[in-house]
Every structure is written in C-alpha cells, then in structure tokens.
Amino acid sequence: MARYGMVIDTHRCVGCHSCVISCFMENSVPEGYKRDWIVEVVSGEFPNFRSEIRSERCNHCDNPPCVFVCPCGASYVEEGTGTVLVHNEKCTGCKACIAACPYDARFINPAGFADKCTFCDHRVKDGLLPGCATTCPTKAINFGDLDQPGSHLHKLMHDRSVKSLKPSAGTGPNVYYLL
C-alpha cells in the first residue's frame, strides 16, 4: 500500500510553467485547460516583499470531497496508491465534483467528463515519475510515497517548514509545500 503525494519546494520554484506545458503534452490536456498551474503570491510594501510561487494541481486528498459527492461512482480513490482518479466512461458531467473541490482542480473535459491531474498514473505504473516532476528544471516538484517512512519526501518535510493548501477544508491534501 502506498499513498502517493508531492512535496513542492516554493524556494526552488521560479514559476516557469515547465510543469504545466509538459503536462499538456504528456496528458493531451484539451486546448484552453490546465491540469496543473502556477500561482504567484507577493505581499508586503515596496520594497519589502515576501513572495511565494507554487505549482498547484489536484491534491489527491485523503478525504476527497469530489469523490464523496460523485453520484455515479465515477470519481474514485485508487486502491493501493491513494490517487484520486475519474472513470471517464461513468461520468455524467453533473459537475458536483467541481463544485466540491476547494482547490478548483477539476474541469469539464470537452469530451464530456470531469478531468484533472492523475499524478500521471500511467507513467507511475511504468516506474516513471509524473511528467511535471520529471521535467521541473528546478527540481522543485518531488513525488513519491508519503507512507514510506524515511523516504526522501519525509526528509524534505522534516528539514523544512511545510504547509498544505486550505487545510481548514478538511480534505487532507497530499501535496505539500516547503516554505
């Protein structure tokens, strides 16, 4: 049993969008849509700013509201990996999952189903890293099994301050950001 997750280093990330564009190619993301994206936050008063750059995507939550609200069982958590996926053929496009996701990570694929980041499950099954983690020039995106004690993800989180997004939503996100 594994619980796949990401630890993304906001200090290393420069917001270059490599993750986004490699995802387009890897997953044939439909024109106009993104499965991952960059958020840049700057606060403070000139010239004393704090800034944070994040590569965001589906958080593959432990308590995924998108899965709970799905009336058709199309959204599901994959056994053994914890990855949140969609059975495209079961989806009616009711959009309840989109409304339920506090991260707005989902969208309607024009082919007629709810779509989002899959942690590149097709690559991971072949023993490869997700496309974004593979290409990230700054190695800001780290992917692995969060349930594996002593893994590189744990080491990264042990050494640094860490946060996840919107923890108050109670979703138990599996994408962490190093601060």
């Binding site: 490599s18 986004v20 564009i21 490699s22 190619m25 593979t134 290409t135 020039p137």
Partner: peptide, 21 residues
C-alpha cells in the same frame, strides 16, 4: 512529447517550458 535528455549536461533530463512546448 519532448523530454529533457538525461545525459546531456545542459538539460540533465529536464527542459524549460519552451523546450517542452
């Protein structure tokens, strides 16, 4: 798809956004 060449000293297996596109 285009990916970074892992053995090339200038890409080290990674590509910038332009290279990816």
């Amino acid at each position: 798809k285009l990916e970074g060449h892992p053995g090339h000293p200038l890409s080290n297996g990674r590509l910038c956004p332009r290279g990816n596109g």
